[in-house]
């Protein structure tokens, strides 16, 4: 299953080993891990709660992986995204892409992450010493996703 939404943590080494297993054609593997920071917009973050829209989440990420496979020469991709209550230093998201060469693996990994940030239905709520607040979408994320459109 190339897309998993889960509350529990993940082990990137294990996931990478599983994705690579038995495929000697793989010459490159690119990965990204997103992590909870302890500061956002100048305030201390004590906890972060991630919510998603079940059904659409899996479908939208599978679609993003499908687009990546159509644009770059890659073998496979895996996305694990956590939901629920997370603390600073906790892992949030893992993206792994395998391919024959690094260029396509790097590009596809970054593309998947940029598209996930603007198209997959997740929302973060932060707990700060001042109380809880929903994280606002960033214009920089839209710009990051948009540049892939210009190239396409």
């Amino acid at each position: 299953m190339p897309v998993r939404i889960q509350t529990e943590d993940f082990d990137a080494s294990r996931e990478i080993a599983l994705l690579r297993r038995g495929n000697p054609q793989i010459g490159a593997l690119a990965s990204f891990i997103g992590v909870v920071r302890d500061v956002n917009d100048g305030d201390r973050v004590v906890q972060m709660t991630l919510e998603h829209y079940p059904g659409m989440t899996e479908k939208s990420i599978a679609d993003i992986i499908g687009q990546a496979k159509g644009r770059w020469s890659i073998f496979d991709a895996l996305v694990i995204h956590r939901v629920g209550a997370l603390k600073p230093t906790d892992q949030i998201v893992l993206v792994v892409v395998t391919g024959a060469h690094r260029g396509d693996a790097f590009a596809a990994c970054e593309f998947i992450m940029d598209y996930l940030k603007t198209r997959a239905p997740f929302w973060k709520k932060e707990s700060t010493p001042q109380g809880e607040r929903w994280v606002e979408a960033r214009a920089s994320d839209d710009i990051a996703a948009e540049r892939w459109r210009l190239k396409g």
């Binding site: 997103g34 991630l50 998603h52 829209y53 059904g55 659409m56 479908k59 939208s60 995204h81 949030i92 998201v93 992450m113 996930l116 940030k117 603007t118 198209r119 997959a120 239905p121 997740f122 929302w123 973060k124 929903w134 994280v135 606002e136 979408a137 960033r138």
Partner: peptide, 25 residues
């Protein structure tokens, strides 16, 4: 379960969702 614009057609049986801009990752 697909992102849709304001002019998207809706019909009986559909599941429609409204939400703020997404902030995952």
């Amino acid at each position: 379960h697909e992102m849709a614009h304001a002019d998207a057609i809706i019909k009986d049986g559909d599941e429609i969702a409204f939400f703020p801009p997404v902030t995952g990752g």
